[in-house]
Design a protein around this nucleic acid. Structure first.
Lengths: 209, 209
DNA sequence: CCCTATGCTGAACATTCGTTCAGCTGGCTG
DNA sequence: CAGCCAGCTGAACGAATGTTCAGCATAGGG
């Protein structure tokens, strides 16, 4: 079980093309990524890109399934076995580690989720499923108070947890932090913990700003 | 003070071009929007688009400043005067109304914020500023408990409040809701209110999933 | 040794892009 | 009425795009 995307033996031209396309898509988006740019970055002719993947869309699809499979390989195994109450936390920690270790993975996932691609939508939905299950388990254990709308609150937990990835540049600019720095993550985590363990508005009325 | 983007007298060709470009950018993004598509949607020749705005980038910039100015005109006035503790709430409500009334405004703002455009980054930063000010005021009033990291928690409030816009498609798919329906908004608001007025994890340790 | 399959390239293709330009129109000013 | 200017168009341009294709090299099996 490795968080590495490529082993050293995977440096065939096809793999280099895939890696180059991944980086370019993460940086610029699908539409702004050209076949020639992919080829140049991979040190290869544009024709070879088409030769291996059929078309530009073929490269894009290959990257998508490749990343989705990679994400699942590194997170799914955490869901089964052990204490389910800790499953989501392990999943988040693992995800953070992957984002930290694989350059541009965060940017790519952000695009995948926010471009409304079906892969991204499904992946997020499954994460909400898991978050809701875990929250329900905590309720049964008496470690969380009952929720009127459990699934919505589970989604909020997920959003707050994923915010440094989902909304990375936005938060970095607004908070003057840099999520390449580990301390920025822990600062966010601490604030998140405080928000969830201590009611921000202990008073009564639904008066949310 | 109107939330309308265009009055009926504003239907010059230039205005139609701007509107068409706005819709296309909101739907497909800047890069996938072509001058010819803008022209066709506005019922105009491609040359006229260039004639009025100088270049495609000119159209994009015009839209950006147009929307940013529109957002400010409809939210800034709410900040001054009256009870500052209610300013952000009024701002959020007004924003929701604008998004509901102006088609594709939500999609456009989502792109503006998430594409990392400077306009979007600055706008979000200012929103965090306001959110932090308002939270500080609530603390002084005793309506909110003290925060260790006030600005981070203010950002979290903003993220939760803007989530239906920022992460619209993601949430709609994960929660099986449709934010065109008013009830989906109130459901989200209710859950948000519950999360903020009643600690989710009343227990001790920082054990956030 | 030949011969085929594989990996790969350079040149070219048609298409689409943003942009330019000469010129048409209609209404206002002098 | 003459002149003119802003609004607007059709046709064309060069550049860039995704894709095709004939052909090069090389390694492996008969």
């Amino acid at each position: 079980m490795s968080t590495q995307l490529t082993g050293p033996e995977d440096l065939t031209a096809k793999a280099r093309i895939r890696g180059a396309a991944f980086a370019l898509v993460a940086e610029r988006g699908v539409h702004a990524t050209t076949v020639r740019a992919i080829a140049q970055r991979a040190g290869v002719s544009p024709a070879l890109v088409i030769h291996h993947f059929g078309s530009k869309q073929g490269v894009v699809d290959a990257i998508s399934t490749w990343i989705v499979e990679y994400l699942h390989r590194n997170t799914r195994e955490l869901d089964r076995g052990g204490d389910p109450a800790q499953a989501l936390q392990r999943r988040l920690v693992r995800f953070e580690r992957m984002v930290a270790e694989v350059p541009l993975l965060g940017a790519y996932v952000r695009r995948m989720l926010l471009d409304g691609q079906p892969d991204g939508l499904d992946w997020f939905r499954r994460a909400v499923d898991l978050s809701a299950e875990e929250l329900a388990h905590r309720e049964r254990m008496g470690k969380a108070r009952p929720s009127t709308d459990l699934r919505s609150e589970a989604a909020m937990l997920l959003i707050l947890g994923f915010a440094p990835v989902l909304l990375g540049p936005l938060l970095e600019h607004a908070l003057d932090v840099d999520f390449d720095d580990e301390r920025s993550w822990t600062r966010w985590r601490d604030a998140e913990s405080e928000l969830l363990t201590s009611a921000l508005y202990p008073g009564a009325a639904a008066d949310t700003p």
